[in-house]
């Protein structure tokens, strides 16, 4: 059985204790809400998009250390990036979580470093927690689809 240290890496706990980009953005920023029906966790993702670039991102809501730190790392990773790059990053992150996009066999661009996000790869050893880790990412996709 994998140990707690595989899951709760120091960088994850750091993002949990000191979440980045907490807050809200006023319209016309796009807001999307995500729920984990299993545990009741709720998250709101706000993005401010201009010229195909996510200029700003904010996160609000409540959740466990995995969902909160994943959201925090995500916000730091996508801020200032193009929508295309972000969609690729979402796919890469979900691939790391063993979730593949159905019907998409195109190679995943792995040229960019995942940075802090690498710390979340231990989550895969705890399948119940994968949903926690991807909640904010799916919510981000909803926001991008509405932008």
């Amino acid at each position: 059985m994998p140990g707690l240290e595989d899951l709760y890496r120091e960088i994850i706990l750091d993002h949990y204790r000191t979440p980045r980009n907490r807050g809200e953005l006023a319209p016309p920023a796009v807001k999307a809400e995500g729920h984990n029906p299993l545990c009741g966790d709720e998250i709101q993702v706000y993005i401010d998009v201009a010229d195909g670039i996510v200029r700003d991102v904010k996160i609000s809501g409540q959740g466990c250390s995995i969902s909160q730190s994943s959201a925090s790392m995500m916000s730091a990773a996508v801020k200032g990036k193009s929508i295309d790059d972000i969609r690729n990053l979402v796919r890469r992150f979900k691939h790391m979580m063993s979730i593949e996009e159905e019907g998409n066999d195109s190679p995943i661009d792995e040229s960019q470093s995942l940075g802090d996000l690498e710390a979340l790869q231990g989550v895969v050893k705890f399948p119940v927690r994968i949903k926690c880790a991807v909640l904010s990412w799916n919510t981000l996709l909803d926001a991008l689809n509405n932008a």
Binding site: L4, L7, Y8, C39, D41, G63, C64, S65, I66, F126, R129, C132
Partner: peptide, 9 residues
């Protein structure tokens, strides 16, 4: 401590 984390411990 969030209940999920508690349950994990």
């Amino acid at each position: 401590v969030h209940p999920h984390d508690l349950s994990q411990v």
